[in-house]
């Protein structure tokens, strides 16, 4: 029984991974790609690891749970660092973007 539930959770996780990677290919600029990919792949991988916990339990399950918590904490931090690095290295937003308060404030700081 628990094996079936585990496999269902893993299947949902893989589906989210796939959505995230389609987003990585389809979306127009790096910030949007980071958005889609980070959200979907983080939840997808966490669901796969939780699925392992439900499926197997024991030592493997505990390690999977620790790994899931770690991915949940580290992945948004990595995305945050990447977005900041990309913006500071001068990557422009997509042409359809509405506003960019960050660039305005950075320019103001450079002028002083």
């Amino acid at each position: 029984m628990s094996e079936t539930i585990g496999m269902v959770i893993i299947s949902i996780g893989v589906a989210f991974d796939l959505f995230g990677c389609i987003g990585l290919v389809r979306l127009p600029d790096i910030y949007n790609r980071l958005q889609g990919a980070t959200k979907c792949v983080t939840l997808g991988t966490c669901l796969i690891l939780v699925g392992v916990l439900v499926h197997s339990g024991g030592a493997m399950g505990i390690k999977a749970l620790l790994c899931a918590i770690f991915v949940l904490l580290s992945s948004p931090t990595g995305a945050h660092a990447l977005a900041r690095g990309a913006h500071r290295s001068g990557v422009k937003l997509w042409k359809g973007s509405v506003m960019d308060k960050y660039a305005e404030d950075q320019e103001g700081k450079l002028d002083q």
């Binding site: 989210f16 959505f19 995230g20 389609i22 987003g23 389809r26 979306l27 127009p28 600029d29 910030y31 949007n32 958005q35 889609g36 959200k39 979907c40 939840l43 937003l93 997509w94 359809g96 973007s97 509405v98 506003m99 960019d100 308060k101 960050y102 660039a103 404030d105």
Partner: peptide
Amino acid sequence: VVRANLDVAYRVLHPEMPIRPGIVK
């Protein structure tokens, strides 16, 4: 988190990609 993922899935799979991005403060 789950709502965010369904939101991203909708935007990614929609043929016209209904996005209106920007950076706010």
